[in-house]
Design a protein around this nucleic acid. Structure first.
Length: 662
RNA sequence: GCGCCCAUAGCUCAGCUGGAUAGAGCAACGGACUUCUAAUCCGUAGGUCGGAGGUUCGAAUCCUCCUGGGCGUGCCA
């Protein structure tokens, strides 16, 4: 049920009778900000009165007179400067709920025009461990995929794996120089990860040594700047508060820079120390002074078809995929396709040739570039050395998807820092046969550390994703297995049930916390808050669900029983909390539509939390089993049953599970 | 230098195409368990929506400028 859409039609009809083109104002309908104003409000009278040059309240009255909404609303009221306030009738609410009973879609219709939407998300580089930075794309992409599918679109998910990059040069180098074939093949996933980490550490060591001097300089500069700012502050005219304020700000800024420079330098120094203080590592570092360039050479050899490296790549790739699939299993995320960069490798030369023949690309400084009028820098599709780039692969991917999937829309769930890349890509795609496809960069913000600084993806010291999931589940287990809480349950909870709950609650907490932020904003990653199991978290919603299930269990009723009871006893509202809950329930479709409109799952998160909140209030105020009459009990059982199902379905669309008790 | 993004309560964050008195959670303080699970609920306190102009009947939201921060910026992905 989508009340605003329904209302919009009614208003359009009424407005057309008032002035030509009046229906353009019909969309100005929204839920009221304050329940005392009713359920929905229409704001069209104010702007319309300006157009007509008359009093807004009079215009509102004319609209109300022409409006036909008796079947849905009580008498509309005009308030303030010209708001039209509308309150749904109880009859309408009750009959809408009745329709939701037994309907797996909870009265959410499938969209009228089905689109084919490709969602490109997650896309990790295989061969290196997944870390916290991979959460956002994976979780947002998965939630969008489930939600768009639910409302009736044809969704195709594709994990564009980074399976052809430098990380394989790292593994190949590591295998050739440090790998024991027997040990590696005995336990390939773990051993390859170890090799990756070792070689990466040695590379980082080299880089840190190379950078140390300039980092030291940055610290010195920042120190000087702080001293200078301090002097300025001291000499600032005490009579002039503005000058003093400015000097203070300058000092604060310089201090921040110093802290940052010190941090960067310390990180580099730590990398160096870690190797220097380990005799084995420092020996290896001494033996491989050019490891960074050597790794690039191994990568280049792979790309040029060197038989040995290609054979190693083919041998290692499945194990690398096993590694990431383990994480996807745990996260309950899957893909229709996993077409990585390597898949498009054979098509890249053709893409460049086609761009050149169409006059889109041209040679510049030895590279093949597409120059775009709206950008200073070109999009480079082939390097001087002949190698292809990210942009080339993306164009090949676009071409392939157009031919094989015929999408109407492609969503790229990728870090916002790549927005310029996508702007260029989409601009080129417009001249490359993809004018008809809606291309969207579903960008998202950076995950920050608890200190508020961006988590750098290449620092190598990031917390691994698997470890993080384990921590969350462990934390959830501690709470679930709290003896005080466990004592409540009858029959008692077996160990296996406790573990299942911890898994659902722990993983859900991480996903839900990520999805609760608007996708474009940065957020601070705080494991403590996510699994605190208090406040606006997944646990709150899951707990609400568990309470609904317990009531149904105690009443020994399932939804089909409720349908019969409704037919027999009828339904009515006798407490405001019942009506408030009903109003939330019928808005499910509205919430889902807003998720699609802005590609923003946080709107569904908000909706679920609000619904759970309203349910809690209902739960406090409206006892089901002790209800005074059959009709009241039937009404409440219906609300409980629908709420439980709605929370379950809603969480499911976010990729978060529920448990029957917790 | 140029481009993009951000600034909302002590902290972490919402705020949908401009709408009525700017919200939530956490932290603080005060209440509620003989009650279908207190992982809960109720209440109190806390904000010049970074600053200054402008558009409008009406601005956290749109425009301009300023300040502060982040990110990106020709051969990584």
């Amino acid at each position: 049920m989508h009340v605003p859409n329904l209302l919009q039609q009614r208003f359009a009809e009424a407005l057309l009778g008032i002035t030509e083109g009046g229906d353009a104002f019909a969309s100005m309908i929204r839920p009221t900000s304050d329940p005392k104003h009713g359920d929905y409000q229409a704001n069209c009278a104010m702007p319309l009165s300006k157009k007509l040059g008359s009093n807004p309240r009079e215009v509102a009255q004319r609209i109300v007179d022409a409006l036909k909404v008796d079947d849905l609303f009580e008498n509309p009221e005009i308030a303030g400067p010209g708001f039209i306030n509308l309150k749904l009738t109880d009859d309408f609410l009750l009959s809408t709920l009745r329709n939701m009973l037994g309907d797996v879609r909870l009265s959410v219709p499938r969209v009228e025009s089905e689109q084919t939407i490709i969602i490109d998300f997650s896309s990790p580089n295989v061969a290196k461990p997944m870390h916290v930075g991979h959460i956002r794309s994976t979780v947002i992409g998965d939630a969008l995929s489930r939600t768009l599918q639910f409302i009736g679109h044809r969704v195709i998910t594709d994990n564009h794996l980074g399976d052809w990059g430098t990380q394989f040069g790292i593994i190949i180098y590591g295998y050739k120089h440090f790998g024991d074939p027997e040990v590696v093949m005995a336990n390939p996933v773990a051993e390859l990860t170890k090799l990756y980490r070792l070689v990466n550490q040695l590379i980082e060591y080299r880089k840190a040594i190379g950078a140390l001097e300039s980092l030291q300089q940055a610290v010195t500069d920042a120190t000087t700047a702080v001293a200078k700012s301090q002097a300025e502050l001291e000499s600032a005219d005490a009579e002039d508060p503005q000058a003093k304020k400015k000097a203070k700000k300058g000092l604060a800024s310089a201090e921040r820079r110093l802290v940052s420079a010190n941090g960067t330098q310390a990180a580099a120094q730590a990398k160096i120390d870690a190797v220097d203080q380990d005799s084995k590592l420092s020996q290896l570092a001494g033996e491989h002074p050019k490891i960074d360039t050597a790794v690039l050479e191994e990568t280049a050899k792979l790309h040029h078809g060197d038989p040995e490296n290609v054979a190693l790549w083919e041998r290692f790739l499945p194990y690398c995929k096993d590694e990431i699939n383990r994480v996807y299993d745990r996260l309950d995320v899957d893909f229709d396709h996993t077409l990585g960069e390597s898949f498009y490798q054979p098509m890249l030369a053709d893409v460049v040739a086609k761009l050149e023949s169409q006059g889109l690309a041209s040679e510049s400084d030895g590279a093949i570039c597409v120059f775009l009028p709206e950008f200073d820098a070109p999009m480079i599709v082939r390097k001087q050395d002949g190698a292809f780039l990210y942009a080339t692969t993306d164009l090949a991917t676009l071409q392939y998807r157009r031919e094989h999937f015929e999408p109407t829309e492609i969503l790229y769930v990728v870090d916002t820092r790549q927005s310029e890349h996508f702007e260029k890509l989409f601009a080129v795609a417009n001249h490359f046969g993809l004018e008809q496809v809606k291309l969207v960069h579903v960008n998202f913000g950076t995950v920050l550390g608890e200190d508020g600084r961006p988590m750098k993806t290449r620092s190598g010291t990031l917390i691994g994703l698997e470890g993080l999931l384990n921590d969350a589940v462990d934390r959830a287990k501690q709470v679930v297995c709290n003896p005080e809480r466990l004592a409540v349950f009858d029959p008692p909870m077996e160990e296996s049930e406790q573990e299942a709950i911890a898994e659902t609650v722990g993983i859900g907490a991480i996903k839900f916390a990520d999805l609760s932020h608007h996708r474009t904003s940065d957020y601070r990653f705080s494991l403590n808050k996510m699994v605190s199991l208090e406040g606006r978290t997944s646990t709150y919603v899951q707990y609400s669900f568990a309470r609904t299930q317990k009531i149904l269990e105690n009443a020994q009723k399932c939804e089909s029983d409720v349908i019969e009871m409704v037919a027999e006893h009828g339904i009515e509202f006798t407490h405001p909390a019942e009506r408030d809950l009903a109003l939330m329930l019928i808005r499910f479709e509205e919430a889902l539509q807003t998720v699609h409109k802005d590609y923003a799952p946080n709107l569904l998160v908000d909706y679920l939390l609000d619904t759970a909140k309203v349910y809690s209030k209902f739960n406090e105020n409206c006892h089901v089993l002790k209800a005074e009459t059959e009709t009241i009990q039937t009404t409440r059982l219906m609300l409980v049953s629908l709420t439980g199902r709605m929370l379950q379905v809603g969480l499911g669309l976010l990729g978060v599970g529920v448990v029957p008790r917790m």
